[in-house]
Write a protein that binds this DNA or RNA. Structure first.
Length: 472
RNA sequence: GCUCCCUUCGUCUAGCGGUCCAGGACACCGCCCUCUCAAGGCGGUAACACGAGUUCGAGUCUCGUAGGGAGCGCCA
């Protein structure tokens, strides 16, 4: 039997981090076993579902590169099918019409709670196979009264429930639309899903669904319930923790693969391996190895992974994404150095592309802000004027404008002046950036461009003179 | 309240009865390297929730306790 998995979000918001991991695991399981991955949109709650949310989910999956083989299939397109199956269940004596009022149901629920029992429908309408003309009703599934339901969860192991714990759930609402527990069964069986991988908030629904499978004469698929992802404080993930849409991670400067790598290791492992290419994930992933305990989301590790990929990916591949972030900051990438060169200079110093774009700003516009401590300490140094002048002269005639050539030139200057590298590099650094922190000096100078570098040195020499005059 | 699930360093995890005075990674601390900041190298602190039981032997199996979580809708 070919493996078929599905990701079935309800379009009531963006694709958040938990959904993204579920989608990833479903995708990996399908790819690993050479099967198909199906995307299904569970939009039967028409009051909460929106087209924008559908688009946000599609965008998020596309950004992560989780491509589906079938779908998106919309449940709202399948109303007739659910109604037909629900009515067939009534005819088969396995479901019935229920006309109980909300008031009666509420009273019932409250009474159970007051007595310390689990709220449960009492079966009042059991046996109603027909409706009077004009009467509206829901259809309830008639759950078995005795015995138990069990299944072997691929992550949590065997789970068993007494049927006494379950009640007759509504499968078709009075508006003719199916409820979740019924729609999934019809869909998963129609779509020949072999493995249901979903959040473990669905564990409690599984026995009800299995009973429906049996009533329909169907064999249930395999189930794998993923533990949830918690915020860094161990609380349920909320917006302040990163429960934002995955597209926010793009905006914050994360590489999609870094997020994927982080997510795949959150709750799953393969020995001591931390870094996984897409191909390795597909080869090694097995849903049965997923941890059964919930995991906390840790930005520090995500940052580390993101930087790892920033450092090891081809700069040319990262350049367009840096360009995107530069533009987001209102910087024209064409007004300064090539983004790929910026990547090389900054990738060991930042964790995200956003941070990289912010720090790249100094090469796309003249120095505006001069750090006074930096000016005083380095432009005001006794050897600064001579160092700057010598460097300027060397740069002006450098045959090859490259970090390597610049590095050699600076070494030569420091040797000639008989001062340490720092005495040349630091004044230059302040000249280029207005601060005393930047990438290695040769890259910092290189990125300014020859003309830009000479200009910045001229400006700095004036300031240096001012600093010395101020002392005198 | 009831039912179900979960519990190894701060965090993610390895561990599938002896090779574990518990390994790796992130974070943190220290040293080295060094033109700043990083990156990198080396080293360090740090965990089997608790209690019984099974066993020659338990982080690993069983049962309790405690603590977390989920579900109990004409939401998904």
């Amino acid at each position: 039997m070919t493996v078929r998995t599905r990701f079935a979000p309800s379009p009531t918001g963006f694709l958040h981090i938990g959904g993204a991991r579920t989608a990833l695991y479903c995708w990996l399981e399908a790819r690993h076993r050479g099967g198909q991955f199906i995307l299904r949109v569970e939009d039967t709650d028409r009051t909460r579902s929106t087209d924008e949310a559908v688009q946000a989910i599609l965008d998020g999956m596309a950004w992560l590169g989780l491509d589906h083989d079938e779908g998106p299939i919309y449940q709202t397109d399948r109303g007739d099918r659910y109604r037909a199956v629900a009515h067939s269940l009534v005819e088969a004596g396995k479901a019935y019409y229920c006309t109980c009022t909300r008031e009666r149901l509420d009273t019932l629920r409250q009474a159970s709670l007051d007595e310390g029992r689990k709220p449960r429908y009492d079966g009042h309408c059991r046996g109603r196979r027909h409706l009077e003309a004009g009467e509206t009703a829901v259809i309830r599934f008639q759950n078995p009264d005795h015995g138990s339901v069990a299944f072997d969860d691929r992550i949590k192991g065997r789970i068993e429930w007494a049927n006494e714990e379950l009640d007759d759930l509504v499968i078709l609402r009075s508006d003719g639309w199916p409820t979740y527990n019924f729609a999934v069964v019809v869909d998963d069986s129609d779509m020949r899903i072999s493995e249901v991988i979903r959040g473990d908030d669905h564990v409690n629904n599984t026995p009800r669904q299995i009973n429906i499978y049996h009533a329909l004469g169907l064999e249930p698929p395999a189930f794998a319930h993923l533990p949830m992802i918690l915020g860094g404080d161990g609380q349920k993930l909320s917006k302040r923790h990163g429960a934002v849409g995955v597209m926010q991670y793009r905006d914050d400067g994360y590489l999609p693969h870094a997020l994927l790598n982080y997510l795949v290791r959150l709750g799953w492992s393969h020995g001591d391996q931390e870094i996984f290419s897409n191909q390795e994930m597909v080869e090694l992933f097995d849903v049965a190895n997923v941890n059964s305990a919930p995991a906390r989301f840790d930005f520090a590790k995500l940052d580390w992974l993101n930087q790892h990929y920033l450092k090891t990916n081809n700069p040319a591949a990262i350049a367009p994404q840096l360009g995107w972030h530069l533009r987001a900051l209102g910087i024209d990438p064409d007004s300064g150095p090539a983004p790929a060169d910026v990547v090389v200079a900054l990738r060991e110093r930042v964790h995200t592309l956003k941070e990289m774009a912010e720090r790249a700003r100094i090469w796309y516009a003249p120095v505006e802000h001069w750090d006074s401590a930096a000016v005083r300490k380095h432009l005001g140094a006794a050897t600064a004027p001579a160092a700057l002048a010598a460097a300027r002269k060397a740069f002006a005639t450098l045959p090859d404008w490259s970090p390597e050539a610049i590095h050699e030139a600076i070494k030569l200057v420091s040797a000639e002046l008989e001062v340490g590298m720092g005495k040349v590099a630091q004044p230059l650094r302040v000249a280029m950036t207005g601060t005393q922190v930047s990438p290695s000096i040769e890259h910092t100078v290189f990125l300014a461009g020859r003309d830009g570098a000479l200009q910045r040195i001229d400006t700095a020499i004036e300031r240096s003179a001012g600093a010395h005059a101020g002392e005198a």
